[in-house]
Computed example of a mutant assay.
Amino acid sequence: MNAPAPGFTLGPNSYGKSGIRLVHVDRASARHAIRDLTVHTALAGDLDATHYSGDNTGVLPTDTQKNTVYAFARDGVGAIEAFAERLARHFVETVPAVAHARVRIEEHPWTRIGDHSFARGEGGELRTAEVRFDGAASVTAGVRDLLLLNTTDSEFSGFLVDGYTTLPETDDRILATAVTAAWDYAAAPADPDEAFRAARAALLDAFAGTYSLSLQQTLYAVGERILKTVPEAREVRLSLPNRHHYLLDLGPLGRDNPGVVFQAGDLPYGLIEGTVRREAP
Results as ranks from 00 to 15, higher is better:
D172L: 04
D171S: 10
T152H: 07
V143D: 01
L149M: 15
D171C: 02
H116S: 13
D191S: 07
A186S: 09
A141R: 09
R120W: 05
G114R: 13
V161S: 06
G158Y: 15
L147D: 13
L175D: 07
F156P: 05
P192K: 02
L148Y: 07
I113M: 08
P192V: 03
A136V: 14
L175Q: 11
P189E: 02
D171F: 09
L148T: 05
L149K: 14
Y164H: 12
S157K: 15
R112M: 06
F159W: 10
A136N: 08
L126C: 05
A178K: 12
D134T: 06
H116D: 15
A176I: 04
Y185T: 00
T180D: 15
A190D: 15
L126P: 04
G123V: 12
D134C: 03
P109H: 12
E125R: 09
A136D: 12
D193H: 03
A176N: 06
V179H: 04
A188Q: 08
E169C: 00
E155K: 10
L167K: 08
P168D: 05
E122H: 09
A186L: 12
Y185N: 00
V161G: 00
R127E: 11
F118Y: 15
L126M: 10
A181Q: 07
P168K: 01
A182P: 02
L148G: 01
V131P: 09
E122T: 11
L148C: 04
N150L: 14
A136I: 08
D145Q: 14
R132Y: 06
S154T: 14
V143L: 15
G121W: 05
D162R: 03
L146S: 02
P109R: 08
D115H: 13
V179E: 05
H116T: 10
D162F: 11
T166V: 14
V161P: 02
R173L: 11
T165L: 03
A188W: 09
G158I: 14
T166Y: 08
T151R: 10
V179G: 00
E155V: 13
F133W: 14
A188N: 01
T180Q: 11
A190K: 10
T128N: 01
F156S: 02
P168R: 03
A136E: 14
A129W: 13
Y164A: 08
E130D: 02
D134I: 04
A186W: 12
T177L: 05
T152L: 01
L149Y: 05
A188T: 11
F159G: 00
T170C: 07
D145N: 13
E125L: 14
E169N: 01
R144I: 01
S138H: 14
T166E: 13
T180F: 02
W110F: 14
R144F: 02
V143N: 01
D193Y: 09
D184V: 11
S157V: 06
L167E: 09
D145R: 14
